[in-house]
Design a protein around this nucleic acid. Structure first.
Lengths: 211, 211
DNA sequence: TCCGGTCTTGACCATTTGATCAAGATTTAT
DNA sequence: ATAAATCTTGATCAAATGGTCAAGACCGGA
């Protein structure tokens, strides 16, 4: 991932009011479109149509389609990573894990499009976020794995593979965004969020209490 | 989903040796390509290239790109559904669930492309499998939910929402195919399968033993 | 061997789509 | 008010791509 995706950084690094405003409008629309149809399945016309700007105008702000994608993806990654960052080694393990799962679930419900965009990117081999995965994400995950291992070592958590626990938490929480149509088809409408939260916490953390 | 996706059913419903052979070759290649790049991101040329047939030749066997996709998707759905079908109400609940999770995980490892194809389809709103989700899948899931509820009722399983348990099992097992690049980036290479199996069983079923 | 049906493909078409550009409209600073 | 900078867009282009077609190669049964 490179930086500097927008266009005008040449002369005045400062962004115009219109500029930053339209960039946000474009990225909002792009998140919707890309997360729904995938990169290849989305067209500039769709994004332009959704945000009420003309196609050439999009190219005024972003030189290439790939730049729009890159920008919206980067904005998403920050959001996506945030909850894990807050896992506190000092807090009570089960409570802290419950808080993390709950926060991840909240994000899934609040920003399903972000989850789907990320899922799509990974599903297709992470062509744009390979360095993110092997860099920042890996470091953070290793740090948090150490925290979980420590909790286990001091007997506050049943022994469990930390990495796979993190995978499981991600998988289950994001499932409700990424597979939303399936979830809705099987529950008959949107599932009740509190019920979902309780069930997810039960299933994921129910077996972690030490004897 | 409609039937009759291939071409020649008109005169002789019987398929030539070459015909059924090439159809399989095409579908195999199509699964690879579609699961990697998505529907829109895949081209007939890619599929043709991968299976060593010419582009017009593909159109000889399948009239439209969508027909190829449909055919490979249908073939995948059968495979995908199979393990759940075998959930036996008479068996020991925890053992039976463990067997199911294990079988699902085996399928994930054996046919990651199938998992990804399905994931991609759902992720993009299930445009081709809506009726499958709301029909056969829903019925089967409701039947199996009843089984789980029964296990709980007779005290052989800790109370847990059956539907969300099924979701969790799907989410976690398929995660290792759908998010394989992320898993590999974080584990540093392919994760050990037996270790993964133990961890997944621990996490998903560890809290289900009744007191 | 020979014939009808099956299979294969090079050349081609029409549409979609990412991207460009020049000309004009609008905003901003002075 | 005015000039400079910024912003906007209709028209257009070139490449990619789903799909067609006619001509020829191949195969299988009599």
């Amino acid at each position: 991932m490179s930086k500097a995706v927008a266009r005008k950084p040449a002369k005045s690094a400062r962004k115009t009011r219109i500029q930053s405003q339209n960039e946000q409008i474009i990225l909002d629309a792009a998140l919707d479109v890309f997360s729904t149809y995938g990169y290849r399945g989305s067209t500039i016309d769709q994004i332009a149509g959704k945000c009420g700007l003309s196609k050439p105008n999009l190219f005024y702000y972003f030189r290439h389609k790939a730049d729009i994608y890159q920008a919206v993806l980067e904005r998403t990654l920050v959001t996506w990573l945030e909850p894990l960052r807050t896992l506190d080694p000092e807090a009570d393990p089960l409570g802290e894990l419950a808080r993390y799962v709950s926060a991840k679930l909240d994000m899934t419900f609040a920003k399903p499009a972000a989850s789907r965009l990320f899922a799509n990117e990974i599903l297709h081999g992470a062509p744009h976020v390979g360095t993110f995965l092997k860099g920042p994400l890996k470091e953070l995950v290793e740090a948090k794995s150490a925290v979980i291992r420590h909790w286990i070592a001091v007997g506050k958590l049943k022994p469990v593979d930390p990495l796979h626990l993190i995978f499981a938490i991600w998988a289950v929480t994001q499932h409700y965004a990424d597979f939303a149509v399936q979830v809705e088809a099987l529950t008959g409408g949107e599932p009740d969020r509190e019920q979902t939260r309780r069930a997810v916490l039960d299933i994921l953390l129910g077996g972690l209490r030490p004897n």
